[in-house]
Nucleic acid binder design. Structure first.
Length: 491
RNA sequence: CGGGGUGUAGCGUAGCCCGGUUAUCGCGCCUCGUUUGGGACGAGGAGGUCGCAAGUUCGAAUCUUGCCACCCCGACCA
């Protein structure tokens, strides 16, 4: 149950985000630092995301499996870069038993129950999975392995935000094994495209596809592909990553296969993931000062019907009509709720469903019953129209498609309008300090240069876009033949 | 993990500096009635370990210390 209004985005975007997450009933903080409770309404959206992605993974030949939460500490250290990247943020299990304190003050860790080998709570599962794949793979006939898992992972974060960065989060992680480098790279790119397609077609979020620089690469990867989205406050958000892992994990875990000639080779690997962070992307892409805005394809509730009446006779008449309409809509696969709660006035309901981002609202009163009309109101642009009850269900169904498309168009325009080019550091700072956005610029490919630019602008290279682009003079060193990359301040 | 801020009923808050009956107000909640085309109104009612723990004191929401959580800014990261 949410109380009135949100702070305006223009006043305090960060506060707006926090209030929205809370008032739209998406999530709340738990008593454990950095951990979140995803509430039923928020989880319903995540389930939509999950179900659709799961279907897309299966359509591309993947199967789900489940690997354990706990990973022996020794596994993590087998791949040098990997351990460097994750060691600082791992939760560690050291004991397996509690006992009553002798002074009666409660339970304490039983010092006699110390684990011989400590377990880490997975920050990601490459190590335990590759330790397993070693047993699964003997010959090229065992390849490829195309496995995904839906899981929770823990990374001990210093600074957290609901959905955007929490110590525990939900995600999926795909882990594949291939006999050739080409096939593994293809898989990495294929899954990046699946993500991009999902974000655009279902979340109505346009993304830039690219690869990360060495600095930003996943710990243990040869190449990290990513999709980057632009939020309404002009900051970039990494929405998904797909890694070409080369033979790094195969070598670390000694995973080899016999090829057709009987020669032993190391296996080629990929991994790819998206997380509950997508919820943050969804919120910060479409929502407005009235609350959440959901694309119809991800809305747990697509249509809400609010009756307006003065007495029970009127309500009954309206109900009779609405129940028929509801059946028709449900048959068309449209999710719909008739909110006939007598304790809340229509105005209250309007505001409430706006906060929760229900894409389409229908209001029906005695006037409508008389004229055989209803009032349709769109959440995304607040357009209100009074239309005939004739053929209403299919009009609604079409309108939902229209809303889905309009949200993507709108987000696309925003992305285009907020992508700039800068040829000097001053220009870049000017852009970033005024409204933010993506800034294209040339970069000479050196980490040192990237670091310097970061110090001067607080912007990082979000990606080197996959699209072919021309070369030019490095924004920092002036070096010719530098490649075009995308800078932004980022979440 | 460093610097700053905050924590009082489900939510938002007054009181704290300067310790002293029964902890303020609004929203929400419950009951009854009237209402219902953009967050209704009246009457009555319930709801509190003042973040947690020690300490100072005759007496602590108020003072001291420690801890926990959240928010903002850094460093780090999806």
């Amino acid at each position: 149950m949410s109380s009135k209004g949100l702070i305006k985005r223009s006043e305090d975007f960060s506060k707006w985000y926090n209030e929205l997450v809370s008032k739209a009933d998406l999530a709340e903080h738990s008593d454990v630092r950095g951990c979140m409770i995803i509430k039923p309404y928020g989880y319903a959206i995540w389930e939509k995301i999950k179900d659709q992605l799961d279907q897309m993974f299966k359509e591309t030949g993947h199967q789900n499996a489940y690997f354990p939460l706990f990973i022996p500490k020794s596994y993590l250290s087998k791949e040098a870069n990997h351990v460097d990247g994750f060691a600082k943020e791992c939760a560690v299990v050291t004991h397996y038993r509690l006992k009553n304190a002798e002074d009666g003050s409660g339970v304490v860790v039983d010092p006699d129950a110390k684990l011989d080998e400590e377990l880490i709570v997975r920050p990601t599962s490459e190590t335990i999975i590759w330790n397993t794949y070693k047993k699964w793979i003997q010959s090229y006939r065992d390849l490829p392995i195309l496995v995904n898992q839906w899981a929770n992972v823990v990374r001990w974060e210093m600074r957290t935000r609901l959905f955007l960065r929490t110590s525990e989060f939900l995600w999926q992680e795909g882990h594949t094994a291939h006999s050739t480098k080409i096939e593994a790279v293809e898989e990495t790119e294929k899954m990046l495209n699946v993500y991009a397609q999902f974000l655009e077609q279902f979340m109505a979020i346009p993304v830039i596809k690219g690869v990360k620089t060495e600095n930003e690469r996943f710990a243990g990867a040869e190449e990290t592909y990513c999709i980057e989205a632009l939020m309404q406050d002009g900051k970039a958000l990494q929405a998904g990553t797909s890694h070409f892992l080369g033979q790094n994990f195969a070598k670390a875990f000694d995973v080899t296969f016999a090829d057709k000639n009987g020669i032993q080779n190391h296996v080629w690997a990929t991994s790819w993931g998206v997380s509950t962070r997508l919820m943050g992307a969804l919120i910060m892409t479409h929502s407005d000062d009235k609350g959440l805005v959901l694309p119809p394809k991800l809305a747990p509730l697509q249509v809400v019907i609010v009756p307006i009446y003065k007495n029970s006779t009127q309500l009954e008449e309206i109900s009779n009509y609405v129940n028929e309409l509801k059946q028709e809509l449900l048959k068309m696969g449209v999710s719909v709720k008739f909110d006939n709660d007598d304790n809340k006035k229509p105005g209250w309901k309007f505001a409430e469903y706006e906060m929760k981002g229900v894409p389409l609202r229908i209001a029906i009163g005695p006037r409508d019953m008389e004229n055989k009309t209803v009032e349709l109101s769109r959440r995304d642009n607040f357009n209100k129209t009074t239309i005939s009850q004739n053929g209403l269900a299919s009009k609604i169904s079409n309108l939902l498609i229209q809303i889905q498309n309009d949200l993507l168009d709108h987000a696309n325009s925003f992305l285009n309008e907020n992508t700039y080019f800068a040829s000097t550091i001053e220009e870049m700072n000017k852009i970033l300090n005024s409204k933010g956005g993506f800034v294209e610029a040339f970069w000479n490919g050196e980490s040192k240069t990237e670091q310097k630019i970061k110090e001067l602008t607080k912007a990082t290279i979000r990606c080197i876009p996959l699209e072919e682009s021309n070369t030019g003079k490095c924004i920092f060193t002036g070096q010719a033949n530098s490649k075009k990359v995308l800078f932004a301040r980022a979440y």
